[in-house]
């Protein structure tokens, strides 16, 4: 009896198995050494006592860093609730949420407009969207300072048309908000455009044919089909915005802090590494919970679709 030669499928599976591990290995190594390992170090630091001049006291374990987030010791050594840090968290959250909503409101129509252009014009427009990436975000944020500060371009412009007095735009939540929306807008436009570009416009014709006007076709056909793009856009904007550091640093000054600044502060001026590490973990946990909720919801949608 001769042994049956391996079928094409079996051969492919064998190659596949080898190939799969071979392909994953570099990425797995990278993730382990540059993400998992540093995070373990961070976790360790967050449960140590701070050193007197920065750094940590190795071997001296303490849960203080996590406690400090909501509780502090008053003069008589009682633990009382301190909402200072929570309020910075909530400010960060609301700034990021508003950024997400505003970039969506600005980005969706732009993406739709671009997707409706003839192919050649589409390429040019998408090229224009990517132009901001040519210069460093830091430089672009500095230029917002020139625009927003007292005596800056915006105020001078208003003075030309008769406005007197100072606007005090810079170093406010408003300035941070403007900076965030400005820098994250392309991250909303790109994924939405990608999903709209793939959209079968004959479906929109079908909607018109069935009596849907433009608005109705947008709401009942285009939006649902662009939903994956909108969701990725929101994630790509919200999560980095939550952790943004130098936009609030430059445009918000000391008054409009975000989580990123708070964390930086612990490793810098405040010399409290464990607290900085604990704050990072709090942020991480928060983002993970949000992503989990999103994934659960999205999965339910997917299941409903298939």
């Amino acid at each position: 009896m001769t042994r049956a030669a391996p079928t094409v499928k079996q051969r492919l599976e064998r190659i596949d198995l080898l190939g799969r591990w071979g392909l994953i290995l570099p990425a797995a190594l990278m993730i382990f050494s540059f993400m998992a390992l540093p995070m373990l170090v961070m976790a360790l630091i967050s449960i140590l006592e701070p050193g007197n001049f920065g750094g940590v006291k190795w071997g001296a374990y303490s849960g203080d860093a996590y406690q400090k987030f909501i509780l502090e010791r008053d003069l008589s050594d009682h633990l009382v609730v301190n909402t200072d840090y929570l309020s910075i968290f909530s400010r960060s959250f609301s700034l990021s949420a508003v950024t997400t909503v505003l970039t969506l409101l600005l980005g969706f129509p732009s993406a739709l407009y671009i997707a409706l252009q003839p192919p050649k014009r589409r390429q040019i427009l998408m090229f224009l969207v990517s132009i901001p990436f040519w210069t460093n975000l830091l430089v672009r944020t500095y230029s917002w300072i020139l625009l927003l500060r007292n005596g800056g371009l915006i105020q001078s412009g208003l003075e030309v048309i008769g406005f007197r007095g100072s606007l005090n735009l810079l170093y406010t939540d408003f300035a941070v908000q403007v900076g965030l929306v400005y820098s994250f807008l392309p991250f909303m436009v790109l994924p939405i455009y990608t999903s709209l570009e793939k959209l079968d416009w004959r479906l929109v014709e079908a909607a018109f044919d069935l009596g849907a006007n433009r608005w109705s076709a947008l709401r009942r056909v285009i939006l649902p089909l662009a939903a994956p793009g909108i969701a990725s856009g929101c994630i790509l904007v919200f999560i980095p915005a939550l952790g943004s550091y130098f936009i609030p640093e430059l445009l918000g000054g000391s008054r409009a802090l975000m989580i990123g600044n708070l964390i930086q502060n612990q490793f810098g001026a405040s010399r409290n590494w464990p607290f900085g590490a604990a704050l990072s973990f709090a942020l991480l946990a928060f983002v993970l919970v949000l992503m989990l909720l999103y994934a659960l919801r999205f999965q339910r949608n997917l299941e409903a679709q298939s």
């Binding site: 014709e205 079908a206 909607a207 044919d209 009596g211 849907a212 056909v221 679709q305």
Partner: peptide
């Protein structure tokens, strides 16, 4: 098109992929 008392059965069907059969018909 949406104001014309005309309906089309498209050559490519153009069914809405995100809606069920019943929702398509009800559209």
């Amino acid at each position: 098109p949406f104001k014309r008392p005309v309906n089309t059965v498209f050559q490519s069907y153009a069914l809405f992929p995100h809606l069920t059969v019943a929702q398509n018909i009800a559209f």
